[in-house]
């Protein structure tokens, strides 16, 4: 597989970041950045990462199965991750998740038919003092209310058009 030049450059740098002979260390970062580029972890990506890091495909599969941010199914272009862990729960995280689910018409770990949105209930995202919080792809939104969530979705939908 060949990736966009910036990503290739990142991978080159990444492989050099670890001590000689320890290139296996790049497995997780490489999967994460490649997944961002191609949308999900495909079997070809597993093979490719295995080849580049000098490990077996099984060793990469072991990792993919372990980490929750690595996924083998495509998410929506906007992956909305709503935290419902304690601090968020105490301030309406669950209601927010329910609202998002209703508004988007999808359940946990599902994507809208147009591939625009997907939804996930996530564990504590380190936004406890600004709860309830959610992440849109990698962007944090704090002290979110159902109204603010609607506005966010509206603006994202508008941007897509």
């Amino acid at each position: 597989m060949i990736f966009p030049p910036e990503l290739e450059a990142r991978f080159d740098k990444m492989l050099k970041a670890y001590p000689e002979g320890r290139q296996r260390s790049a497995v997780i970062p490489m999967l994460m950045y490649a997944q961002d580029a191609i949308g999900m972890v495909t079997p070809e990506l597993v093979q490719e990462v295995a080849r580049r890091c000098g490990v077996t495909a099984l060793q990469v599969d072991e990792v993919v199965g372990y980490y929750t941010m690595l996924h083998r199914k495509p998410f929506g272009r906007h992956h909305i991750q709503v935290c419902t862990n304690i601090s968020c729960m105490l301030r309406g995280g669950e209601e927010l998740l329910a609202h998002a689910s209703k508004r988007l018409g999808i359940g946990n770990r599902e994507a809208t038919a147009d591939g625009q949105f997907s939804l996930e209930e996530v564990e504590c995202i380190g936004a406890c003092s600004w709860a309830p919080a959610l992440i849109d792809n990698y962007e944090f939104h704090h002290s979110v209310t159902p109204e603010k969530l609607d506005q966010l979705i509206d603006s994202l939908q508008k941007k897509a058009q």
Partner: peptide
């Protein structure tokens, strides 16, 4: 090394 552990 044909066996590994998946999921968690």
């Amino acid at each position: 090394g044909a066996l590994g552990i998946i999921n968690r």
